[in-house]
Design a protein around this nucleic acid. Structure first.
Lengths: 196, 196
DNA sequence: CTGAGGTCGAACCGATCGGTACGATCCGCG
DNA sequence: CGCGGATCGTACCGATCGGTTCGACCTCAG
């Protein structure tokens, strides 16, 4: 029975639906933790449809990571923008946003890093690297606005803090990890920036 | 043909050989990147032998992670001990050791974290958490010896730096990550410890 | 010498999985 | 109305994989 009676035929909508379900399920259960068949059942879509939209399970995975990466970047960028003009506030806003994420019951660490750890595929590693690049850009910009002695260095150190906090929060059942990282980040900023 | 003519029958030796090969291959190719059959071929051992020693592929994985975790802890502890009595030197020694690791051509990030990202199994997560605990213990001890205002907090922040540096080094083709993290760690130590 | 146990090689099994094929059905546009 | 394309459900295929079994053979302790 094709195209259940009342549904509109809209390839974009179908693609988006697959993407949405796949994003959460692949994240929560792992890339190999769910098969294409089950995935299709969860979305309410046939395998043929999924394969026409994404060609391959790997293609689906790449699309999922790509889209998620963009969403996360947008999310963080907005959090920074909403924090006002003080670079210290902006930096604090990053870690406040991270804390929210860590507190999410389905938090399982960074999807990009998890994926890169599972599929040793070039495409996935590329997406992950680009994702880290965007993080680095955002953090370096904050370091520059703060007048850090070496914004490039400080940016990389902040990236290490962000990723480290994410990893520790995911695998070490400690609360307050985001707060610890935030304090460390502000301390580094203070040590690297001239005045306030 | 069982037990090729000249070989001594020594279960412990066999087990160790499997463990050694499995450690490197599972690390380099991922837990699901190599099957039991190929693994046995690489070791030069039959499946029956492997299964009698480890019962299950998961059992093998757990044994591998357990053993690797202990080796890494010992390795880092010795590096710290060899650095003398100055806590700053000890902390620097940690990141120098990490740099060595990162420069290894087969470096692929922390085996525990990778494994935890792949197998959503309780046993693996437990081993990983314990591993992070040992790290934390080591770093907190340094913070205490340095007279940090809040050694517990500083220890956790250092753990974030260590894990963050490992993640960034693994997934972001940047050189000098260990050095950046080392400088950040020393800066945090300076900010948290009273005198020098 | 003998028996117990470690090991081999190879065959085998059941399950799962990614991907394909097909006929049937229904939407949207002209 | 009619056609093209999107979708469905299902069956199917080939490959892989974890794990088991079996007969043969070898080593080593007593």
């Amino acid at each position: 029975m094709p195209v259940p009676k009342g549904s509109t035929i809209d390839p974009e909508r179908t693609r988006a639906a697959i993407l949405q379900v796949a994003t959460s399920v692949l994240y929560e259960r792992g890339l190999d933790g769910v098969g294409v068949a089950e995935l299709c059942a969860l979305v309410g879509v046939s395998k043929e449809t999924l394969y026409r939209h994404f060609g391959t399970k790997d293609g689906l995975v790449e699309a999922v990571l790509q889209e998620r990466g963009e969403r996360v970047t947008t999310w963080l960028t907005r959090a920074v923008a909403a924090a006002g003009n003080d670079p210290r506030d902006q930096l604090a806003a990053v870690f406040d946003a991270l804390r929210q994420w860590y507190d999410d019951p389905v938090f399982r660490g960074c999807a990009m890093l998890n994926a890169a750890a599972q599929h040793h595929v070039e495409a996935v590693r590329t997406i992950t690297a680009r994702h880290l690049d965007r993080y680095l850009e955002l953090l370096t910009a904050i370091a520059e606005r703060a007048g850090a002695a070496d914004p490039h260095l400080l940016g990389r150190q902040l990236l290490i803090l962000v990723e480290g906090a994410t990893v520790v929060a995911a695998h070490h059942d400690t609360v307050g990890t985001a707060e610890h990282a935030r304090q460390a980040a502000l301390a580094l900023l203070s040590a690297s920036a001239p005045s306030s």
